[in-house]
Design a protein around this nucleic acid. Sequence first.
DNA 1: ATTGCCATATGGTCTAGTCCAAACTATTAT
DNA 2: ATAATAGTTTGGACTAGACCATATGGCAAT
Lengths: 239, 239
Amino acid sequence: MAIKKDASKNIKEVLRDQINGKLLLPLQKLPSERELSELFSITRISVKSALDSLEIEGLIYREDRRGWFVSPPRVKYNPLSRCHFHQMISEQERIAETQLLGVKSMMAPSSIATILALSELTPIHVLERLRYIDGRAVLFVENCLISEFFPDILSENLAQSLTTLYEKKYGFKNSRSHFDFIPTSAPEHVAHALNIRPGQQILKICRVNYNQHHQIIDCEFEYWRPDAVIISIDNRESF
Amino acid sequence: MAIKKDASKNIKEVLRDQINGKLLLPLQKLPSERELSELFSITRISVKSALDSLEIEGLIYREDRRGWFVSPPRVKYNPLSRCHFHQMISEQERIAETQLLGVKSMMAPSSIATILALSELTPIHVLERLRYIDGRAVLFVENCLISEFFPDILSENLAQSLTTLYEKKYGFKNSRSHFDFIPTSAPEHVAHALNIRPGQQILKICRVNYNQHHQIIDCEFEYWRPDAVIISIDNRESF
DNA sequence: ATTGCCATATGGTCTAGTCCAAACTATTAT
DNA sequence: ATAATAGTTTGGACTAGACCATATGGCAAT
């Protein structure tokens, strides 16, 4: 009786072995849920439950109504480094792309006003961008800029590094950033952009940036596909 | 037709509203899955799916065969601060406890040897500890110490701060730490200790510590209940 | 070549149950 | 009082289907 496992444990172990043993390669499609349920003689619900679990582990991911696929290796991401996104990714021999989804100008809603430490009605620009690694959408980014710091920014190419733009066009240097990392679920608009289910787990990063005059100039919300990233931080002391 | 929602969306929204509106308070028990399925006239599977989703969001958590409960607010955790766990928690007016689960002495397996940059067979001590906030087990910690750096450490009280012990007994100061933050799922022994399902999402933190001589002396694996924590890091530049 | 349409494959969601194991509770025997 | 026991409640796991919405690819009309 020690050999016999739960149905879902068995399929999980088999698939994990296949992936770890490189019999299933990154980006490769798994058999459909119906095929798996026949192969393992279990119902589709049990198959789904096993796949859900492997998804949480970060081994596979789903594309809505297309199927299940093996996750590529995670990229290392050091938010504290000066390095731009594209540079950081290409150093890992992966290909990064950035797509500008849209720009809105509005009054800061209370949730954002709190983060930006605004005490009165203040206009902001909100950029929505989607970032790809090796062609897969893995990161949804929302930048909220305090408009008065960035006159005429909307005429620039906003698919590039904002940090560079801040410095070249406005002379801003980063003096401080604050980061919050929160394991939570994807809001509707994020889920849609990343082609994941609303409510799926995600790693949310809230970043607040200060310029060289110690003023908060913008904040950023990053939503990472949880299987795509390792946050990697090195902390050397200066003493 | 715009009013009618999916069954699971409806129950999710109702429960989320109840929690956000403080009608359901932290640590309070939700009605049982069977009661909810009757209340909302949906099957238990749909109820479970909605609860799963709220769990991922971090609003509720389950205790095996006991029920579903409203998550307390997240604690802020800054791994880069010098601050001890107990101090950090009590500054947030929460109560921290630490329980030593066990100590093993062994040869470093390859996975750990790699992290500790060991090139040959090396004895290590492995401490397993469980940390509670307000009586709830939220953090499983595994410390892997290179034995030769810590003679006689097993005779000490290991439920206290290890950092303090390193300094007082061995004169070690931390000169550098490296952190990896990985959203993944709970391994079996971790799930058991935290009373969560094997395979449930977790935030894993791998930490490697260097002493004042720039030697790696130990590493630590932290497994956080994902609804219990916000990682909060402040990055001031020195230029 | 392009466009529009349709069939198919696929995952998303749901119904209506069953059986099981662990946690808890109330009762009973000592 | 204490300990053993039996019943109840609870979530965990599963069966065996159903219908829906969308992504895709092939085909036909333009």
